[in-house]
Structures are given as structure tokens and as C-alpha cells.
Design a binder for these strands. Structure first.
Lengths: 204, 204
DNA sequence: GGTGCGATGTGCAGTAACTGCAATTTCTCG
DNA sequence: CGAGAAATTGCAGTTACTGCACATCGCACC
């Protein structure tokens, strides 16, 4: 099935109506049938365009790290691993080259609907896995002589988990109820900077 | 509905059969009807005992931090926040006072089934929220004079995210496919100890 | 101006998870 | 035994989602 431009148009129409309806009535009160009626397609068509109801609402974008940023990250001298990592994720695409108005509406819905917020968190898993790989690569390059590759890999996976947690924090904000309308990486980073020194451990 | 001992017995029977069936046939191949037939109850009864199919399989335990441990954490001098936190979560109940054999079977299923693994991760959210509160409490006690309560809260929430990420790592292990049969907090902690110094930042 | 072919949309029947309601069976205890 | 509570059940309905066959649409090519 080599999709043409028509397909994209219909997808767009469905998305738009889905977001509009959810914003008006809330996630649970909007059924797939309702979206179909509003966008003038059959239910079967709906599921030809989106695998799940959820996807129609939050979109099908997959957050990706920029290729160039990755190269820069890998080429760095390696003195400031954490800082370089934060720079890396700071350049993450905020979610696809869609209509910015649609994206704004989406974020408003996502941050206020637990089910959607959670699905957004799950998307971070792909980022997390990507990160784990590049981190492992960089750590291997700058590794001390006697280090086991398994250990390095474990450390990389753990670090990727930690960075993902940071991203979750920046998305979710401090108050579960009324979070920022958009992920605020800037202020999150400032919070992290303040937190880190407090973790300093005396015995090291 | 003041549940009596009979109720618990039936729950147990359903759980046991559910776990057995999933272990034999895999998560997707096991329907609620199948579990009902195997455990000799009607479907309606099934849903009287468990809100979702998933709950019947992974159990209804909610991981909690030990009260005493929390007190100890709060009473600590505060020099080693991170270490104390790790001690705190180390004492987490591994998931209810159930039949240990059942729990073992559960972990085997959970760690090999993405849908179940994910539901297990979601359970960590309650722990994470608990942690955020006690961390905030402790940070407030040991705060420097001029610190804003909002800042402290933000730092606490972020730190709770990071600890939760650590727990996720210890559950998931390094290889997504073949993780440890049980969360291995010990070795995870060792990995963290090795990782931390590598994050050391030169400019501070 | 057809005509054919691939892209797109639809109808229909079915499955699976879950819910509400009202009825019924099964204890338990006096 | 009999009353009342606990536990289970049947049934009908809703919602998300799938497979399959069929219809339609649009566009290139003759």
C-alpha cells in the first residue's frame, strides 16, 4: 500500500477532529465512532489510518535525537558527560513537523489526561534505547584500560534510564495536576543543577 | 461488600490459574474466558475479583516503602542523601506476602512479557510519589536558609524520578530480552556506584 | 473518451475486555 | 429452620479493534 497525498489529508482531518472533540468532552467521553462521524469516515477507515484511538489523539510522531547532535556528542572530549547528554536531549524534536496549533492543543490535552500523559511517557522508551546505545559508544571510547564491556553497557543503560527520568520530569512538571503547557527543559535543567551538589557523598 | 475469607480463596484460585495459563501459552493467547473456565468461575465473578485481566496475572500488590525505614531516613544526619535513599528503597517489600512460589512464577512471566513489564513499571509511580514527599520533607529540614520551598519541592520531585528510574533499571536489567528473574538491587547499586564518578563535572 | 490499475474507503461479521443490574445461590449464626 | 449478608451468576450492552471481501475513486495511458 503505497500511500499517496489523499491518505495524509484524511489522516489530518481525523486527527484534527479527534483533538477537538477530546478537548471539548474529555478523553473517555469520546468514542471512536464519534470521531468517525465528526470527520466523515467509516470506523474501518479510521483504523486504517491509526492503529489505536490513542494514536489519533496524540499523533504518530516518534521523538528522535538529531543525527548531527549525536555526532557532536560522540566527538566531544568527554570531560563533561552529563552536560553533553543534557545538550543532546535539549535538541530533541518537540514532536514532528505538524501544524504548531494542533501540537499546542495536543499538549494541553496530554498533560491533563492521565491516559495520554502515560502514553507520552512510553514514547520516551525509544529515545531511551537510542540514548543507551550512543552512551555506550562514548563510554567505550573513553574507558579506562581494565573496564569490562558488560559493566560499561550496564552503566550506559542505567544512565539512559536516568536521562529518560529527567525528560519525564520535564514533561510532567512538579504538580501532577497543572503541569507546564510544554516540556520546559530549561528550568528542569536548572533544577537538576541545584539538586546535584546536594547528592554529593562524603565518603568518596 | 464486606469481603470474607471465601472471597480471598476464590481470588487465589483465579490468580493461580491465570499465572499457570499465561506461563504455558503466553499473555495474548490467554483470554479471560479461559481463565474463568480453568478456575471454575463465571466471567462476571472474575471481574468482581479483579478490575482487569492484567491484575489477575500480576496481582494486586502495591509496593510500599517500610514505615520504619522512612523514619530512619528522615532522622538521618543528611550527609549522604543518595546513599540513604538507596538504603530506603532497598528495603522495599518485593510485592506482597503471597505464596513465594506464585511470586516467582509471576516474575518469570512479567519480565518476559512487555505488556506485563510495563504494568509493573506503572506501579512504581505510587512509590515515586511517596518518595517525593519524604524527600521533600528531609530536604526542607536540611535546607540552607535562603532556599525557596518551591525549588525544594521541584528538586524532590526530580530526585524521586531519578530513584524510580534506578528501580526500573534494577527490574528491567541490562538486556530487555533476558532480564534477571528478580530485581537485583545489589548489583544495580554497584553499577550506579561505578557510574556516578564518571558524571563528575569539571567546572564545578 | 474510455479503460484499467492501484490507492483508498466501506460493510459486515466477529472477538475480547469490561460494566450495570437484577436475580440467585451459598454461607453463617441465632 | 429461617433471616440476612456474602458471594456468585446470567444477561444484555458498550467499546476498541481485526480480517476479509467488495466498492469506489483518481489518474495515467492508449
Amino acid at each position: 500500500m503505497e500511500r499517496g497525498p489523499r491518505h495524509a489529508m484524511t489522516s489530518r482531518r481525523i486527527e484534527t477532529e479527534a483533538v477537538r472533540l477530546v478537548r471539548e468532552r474529555g478523553y473517555d467521553a469520546v468514542t471512536v465512532d464519534l470521531i468517525c462521524e465528526a470527520s466523515g469516515v467509516s470506523q474501518r477507515t479510521f483504523f486504517n489510518h491509526f492503529p489505536t484511538k490513542l494514536d489519533a489523539i496524540v499523533g504518530t510522531h516518534r521523538p528522535r535525537v538529531d543525527e548531527g547532535q549525536v555526532r557532536r556528542f560522540l566527538a566531544s572530549t568527554g570531560d563533561d558527560l552529563l552536560g553533553d547528554l543534557l545538550d543532546l536531549v535539549a535538541g530533541m524534536a518537540p514532536g514532528g513537523a505538524d501544524d504548531p496549533e494542533l501540537m499546542a492543543a495536543r499538549w494541553a490535552i496530554i498533560t491533563t489526561t492521565p491516559a495520554l500523559l502515560q502514553s507520552e511517557m512510553e514514547r520516551l522508551l525509544s529515545v531511551q534505547r537510542e540514548l543507551a546505545e550512543v552512551i555506550e559508544l562514548r563510554m567505550t571510547r573513553h574507558a579506562a584500560p581494565g573496564e569490562s564491556p558488560d559493566d560499561i553497557r550496564a552503566e550506559a543503560v542505567l544512565l539512559a534510564h536516568l536521562v529518560a527520568a529527567f525528560l519525564r520530569f520535564s514533561i510532567e512538571g512538579v504538580e501532577p495536576g497543572g503541569p507546564p503547557a510544554r516540556p520546559d527543559l530549561e528550568s528542569s535543567r536548572r533544577t537538576l543543577e541545584q539538586l546535584l551538589p546536594k547528592l554529593a557523598r562524603p565518603r568518596d
